[in-house]
Design a protein around this nucleic acid. Structure first.
Lengths: 205, 205
DNA sequence: ATTGGTTGAACCAGATGGTCTAAAATATAC
DNA sequence: GTATATTTTAGACCATCTGGTTCAACCAAT
């Protein structure tokens, strides 16, 4: 939780700090990203940084929350009334939106997903524990729904399925990131289909 | 390449150093593992370490080579005369061997695979570049053979398929590592089938 | 006694996340 | 406009860590 005074900063300054932080965390992960580097790149001093945030973890949490909220606002994450027919198309819609709407700001998804397979222990311990439980709950809920609808296998342990889905998601994101400069909008849509195809192959019964 | 004098050390001492290093590199990766920590845990001094190795990268490369050679010796990696019928069973045999023979020393595979998705750039630049090209070449060759035999899809970009296979492999290894203490030999065999099942689902046309 | 091999640990420069205080900037009161 | 109070900031400093350098001390062999 940042200090309340952070919210009173001019929006451009807030966004500069959060965007700089998100880019570093998305690229290097929490441990690998250096607070000193973030501050140097954002052009704020150490004293100012500690005036607005408790510590590195607080900055991380603020960035993750900020972009997760934006992500949730902008993506059609309505997974309420899924049917066996609409399950995979709904997932594909979500990936299309992710890829096309955030193509120029891939760090948005990068930082939100930076809590992926590697950082669970750290994140569960911190202030964002509840947030991450909710996010994992979302994926777990999706897999459970899919199983009930008969479109997702239920022969594997839950934790393994979660881990594999996140790993494939991450691998695909990284692949996409390295090909992003060359991609047209149509190609991004095709990439979403490709990603969902991978998931469907992995997860279908 | 370690100094020749390293090979003249008593085998127990050599193994202690390499095993300690491998455990740290397997757990934290090359960047995340600390040379100072490895030395403290192995009980050798800095001076001695630099007497036997050029630097951290040299130690890493030595550990990777050492265990890769052991892995290649012990596993039935004969992928020469595969048929459409024998393709997946051969993969399963390999995973069975990996899981059952190295259950008590998972760092062997951990360090060899630590060059996975994240460290490619570093490794390609170093002395082990050729080694990694060969290892990647092995996997690429396997995928190509599978495609020729009609048991592996060839509708995805090669680099994406490689990345996804490695990501799933790593996620499964990590899952296995966290469940290893409870697993019987039969369960390890089942895990191998599970892993190959995942690959087959992902890769079959 | 001399030589060669090995080792320990002090040292180095640079980096990390975090602490602290004086200076600078801004807001408020008159 | 000036004086004062409050807020914000810069950057020196801290302890600890990193990978790497160095050399005197020790030991075994001759």
């Amino acid at each position: 939780m940042p200090r309340p005074r952070f919210e009173k900063l001019p929006p451009e300054k807030r966004e500069l700090i959060l965007e700089t932080a998100a880019k570093e965390f998305a690229e290097f992960g929490y441990e690998g990203a250096s607070l000193n580097q973030i501050l140097a790149k954002a052009g704020i001093s150490k004293g100012a940084a500690y005036y607005y945030f408790d510590n590195k973890e607080d900055l991380y949490g603020t960035a993750v929350s900020h972009y997760a909220i934006e992500m949730i606002d902008k993506l059609d994450l309505d997974f309420q009334d899924l049917t066996a027919v609409s399950f995979w198309p709904a997932l594909q819609t979500m990936y299309e939106q992710q890829y096309t709407q955030f193509a120029e700001r891939p760090w948005v998804f990068g930082v939100v997903k930076s809590g992926g397979p590697m950082n669970q222990a750290l994140l569960m311990q911190g202030e964002l524990g509840e947030f991450w439980q909710n996010l994992e709950g979302m994926l777990a809920n999706l897999l459970r729904q899919g199983a009930e609808l008969g479109v997702v296998r239920h022969d594997l342990p839950d934790d393994l399925m979660m881990a594999v889905v996140m790993a494939v998601d991450e691998a695909h994101d990284n692949w996409l990131l390295s090909h992003l400069p060359e991609m047209t909008n149509e190609e991004l849509q095709a990439a979403a289909a490709q990603m969902v195809g991978l998931l469907q192959k992995l997860l279908a019964p």
